[in-house]
Design a protein around this nucleic acid. Structure first.
Lengths: 106, 106
DNA sequence: ACTATTTTTGTCAAAATATGACAAGTCCTA
DNA sequence: TAGGACTTGTCATATTTTGACAAAAATAGT
């Protein structure tokens, strides 16, 4: 999956022959905002992932994976993080996880 | 570097024998808030990175690398992103970079 | 070309979140 | 036990995100 999460939603929507307005209604969302989400101008809201999974009969975990990798990719691009630095970040994350620092309040 | 960015600052500060109050003043910051930052209870503000670099005579790019890998590590932990998914995210980022999607408004 | 429908864009108030500031607390250490 | 160093809690303000609506632009059907 190389598309953005927004493009992915659009793909699913078109496959099912739904309009923005129709899908937006199912997601309890304004169609204008769903349009922005599909076009990457706004974030899709994580809290609507399960609804989305049900509508398109997709495994929620796979959908969530699509979502978090999309978010992370955005973060990587925004910070101009190189592969090498990404490795460092990964190491830091792993280190902190095993040292239970992930439970810190923040 | 396996420590958090906050712990890193604390390390630098101690090395130089500065108190929270002293360093906070140099950074134009409340000492209580700097304490929270060192303890990972608040984010260090990116806009103060260059000041920090000057104070401790550190290369700004290296410091920034420390910072963004810390931020990314936090993101990885928060989303429970596995190594495998991190690879996917990396691929997505690379794909979008080469396709100039990084310039999208968002 | 005309009309209806779909999609996009812009804007704005309200909700959510982050930041700066200060008070009061604890913890050292002499 | 006094003083300095550090931590914690709170709150008003600032910033960012979200939901909503209007209106413009694009698309399709006739």
């Amino acid at each position: 999956m190389k598309t953005t999460f927004g493009e992915y939603i659009r793909l699913l929507r078109k496959e099912k022959g739904l309009t923005l307005t129709q899908l937006a209604a199912m997601l309890d969302l304004d169609s204008a905002n769903l349009s922005k989400m599909e076009n990457g101008k706004r974030d899709f809201d994580e809290k609507r992932l399960s609804k989305l999974a049900k509508i398109f009969n997709i495994n929620i975990n796979e959908l969530r994976d699509e979502y978090i990798t999309d978010q992370l990719a955005k973060h990587i691009i925004k910070t101009k993080c190189t592969k090498q630095l990404l490795k460092v970040a990964e190491q830091k994350a792993e280190y902190r996880r095993t040292h239970h620092k992930s439970l810190q309040t923040q």
